[in-house]
Amino acid sequence: MKQPKVGLFVTCLVDLFRPNVGFSAVELLERAGCDVSVPPAQTCCGQPAYNSGDRADTRAIAELVIAAFEKFDFVVAPSGSCAAMLKKHYPELFAGDDQWEERCKQFSDKVFELVSFLTDVVFLQDLPARYDGTVTYHDSCSGLRELGIARQPRKLLNMVEGVEIKEMKDPDVCCGFGGTFCVKYADISNEIVGQKTADIENTGADLLLAGDLGCLMNMAGKLQREGKATEVRHIAELLAGRLDGPSIGGRK
């Protein structure tokens, strides 16, 4: 197989808050034999505008993303929610547009979420990671329901030496993040994330993992406010063995 050219869509949250996830993604993709590039002309997938009903701005952002990434064989994002935006929702934005519909479809077909890309497309076989401890994995909503990601992260976790997975009672229930929802409806969001942190705590796991930084920051923020000791990381950080720096919201 020729070396696939992959454009990494970093996602705005990873770019701003957690570069380590971006570097982990690069490491994993390269390990799987990909030629990875990171186009500088990327900001965000446009979800904040899209989910606020601002279609015009969303479209403008989508056009930039497509133009920056359409030259790659694959476009990979370390987030189920941003990948679903690029893959499932961009085509809705351009439906019926002579100039863009086909162009967008070609682009969207190439988009994958990181973990499922590693297992389903490039068949990553071995991992550099080792982790002696227990982890629990939260299925973020978009990845799970729009892209069908559930089996893949667990498969990769099982390849990590030393790891024991302890499942939550409801790993597939929303954490209450929901983008701007968590600040617009803070009271409700708080109730939902409170249910989640209780579920996390009941597993007794010492590390919480997920594939979406938004959800992770929400759950980490709540766990820390509650004074819980559970550490929080993006699954890519564990898989790539990049665990030296502080966990999400952890002491530096």
Partner: peptide, 16 residues
């Protein structure tokens, strides 16, 4: 809206 109920994890510092 965020910090009423949760802490905000600080960014690493430099962007990716």
């Amino acid at each position: 809206g965020w910090t009423k109920y949760r802490d905000l994890p600080a960014p690493e510092g430099k962007t990716f």
